[in-house]
Nucleic acid binder design. Sequence first.
DNA 1: GAGTGAGGGATTGTTGAACAATCCGTCAAT
DNA 2: ATTGACGGATTGTTCAACAATCCCTCACTC
Lengths: 243, 243
Amino acid sequence: MTKSDWLSELRAEAPRLGRASTAGRVADVLRTRITEGSLAPGTRLSEEDIGAALGVSRNTLREAFRLLGHERLLVHEFNRGVFVRKLTVEDVRDLYELRRILECGAVRRGAERHAGTATAERWPALLDAVRAAVEEGEAAAERGRWLDVGTANMHFHQAVSALAQSPRVDEAMGHLLAELRLVFHVMAAPQAFHESYLADNRAILELLLAEDFEGAEKAIADYLDAAEAQLVEAYSAAGQVSA
Amino acid sequence: MTKSDWLSELRAEAPRLGRASTAGRVADVLRTRITEGSLAPGTRLSEEDIGAALGVSRNTLREAFRLLGHERLLVHEFNRGVFVRKLTVEDVRDLYELRRILECGAVRRGAERHAGTATAERWPALLDAVRAAVEEGEAAAERGRWLDVGTANMHFHQAVSALAQSPRVDEAMGHLLAELRLVFHVMAAPQAFHESYLADNRAILELLLAEDFEGAEKAIADYLDAAEAQLVEAYSAAGQVSA
DNA sequence: GAGTGAGGGATTGTTGAACAATCCGTCAAT
DNA sequence: ATTGACGGATTGTTCAACAATCCCTCACTC
């Protein structure tokens, strides 16, 4: 192991140190609350109340709000305050539109670069991540932990988009999936929703392993169409009480 | 014109009113400075100096910094300050990777939805925007305004990605192009760089009008490959004095 | 009863100052 | 040449205050 290997390994752990910012930690707390669903969409977050509850000043809290606003988990209305994001049906459709472009594009570009042999050594690790996500979901389903099935499903799609080997694609996908979490809470039966896609994930993995990239792209597109339709239907039924 | 038409037209102008935030206006000023190149990449932005120069408090200025950090025009290093983003060659490559996925994907999805006839009435307006950007660039070139040629080129690609009819794709593309502006300033000869792509833009427009969407996608991919190679070369030669 | 306008309380937007924590360059010591 | 300590400068965070804005209530008019 050469010196530069040491350094690059250490560099990978560097971000863990910089996590000292108070605003960042406040954002972490709120993010967890929101994605877990204990803060319902539409809830207004009072600067004074939350600041007092968390023991931070208003200014620091505002910085945390900006961070979460950037991730689209909160919306900031001028002179009115910040609210937990409330997604419309159009948002759901748009999120899946972007997913189609990103995920299918990631498979396509990954395949092109794989064929180019320029980055051949990274490919197995990328596919391993996909496989790990598939097995994580199957294991969670076997033990009946349906929330974990949903998490594993997100890992699966994050791993698929990672095939593009692009940090910016990874980040965009991460934000997209975090936003989607806001939607999943309106599903009455998360079991049936997530369970039905375990087989699809496995099938997509097999297509990738067989290097049938066109087939994989098509399978992902079909998956997304089906999931979008299911979500839109559930959303129209449950979420549209107002507006 | 029905009542709902009135309202939707007004709604389009609503964002112009909410621009009253001081932090937002400060961000506007700094953004212009950065994208125009008068603030060189790597420059450190002192809170005290800039706050005094612009007549705003440190807290407000910090909010403006977060906004620009979110757009990747500034980088925030904890306990060290904010700096004008300095893109590496890897960043340039990654930006073009994302552009390939977004722009080609937008054409493909736009074509699919166009064929579906569900949103047929919007299509001509989208193509008109592309045409307008092409002609804007040609007019600017004729008058020798090379900076405007670059701007028109960005409008062209923004219009192409708008074919996806997805607000989130539009926004992602907007941020991506703003980030790319940081790179263009290292080009020694912007004339030759931007000029060479005017004909490509026109050709892509013709392919779109002829509804040869596969051809258009291919043309865009080729365009991006060429532009990336040109930029990477210029960047390796000029920008890599340090690191 | 529906719509309009004027208070008034509550919340956010912004400022300025203050102190703690951290970084960075300098200089001495080994 | 590397290490360690000191000190100035900058950022991180808090606090208190005031201005600006929103929103609810209530009286008023027709």
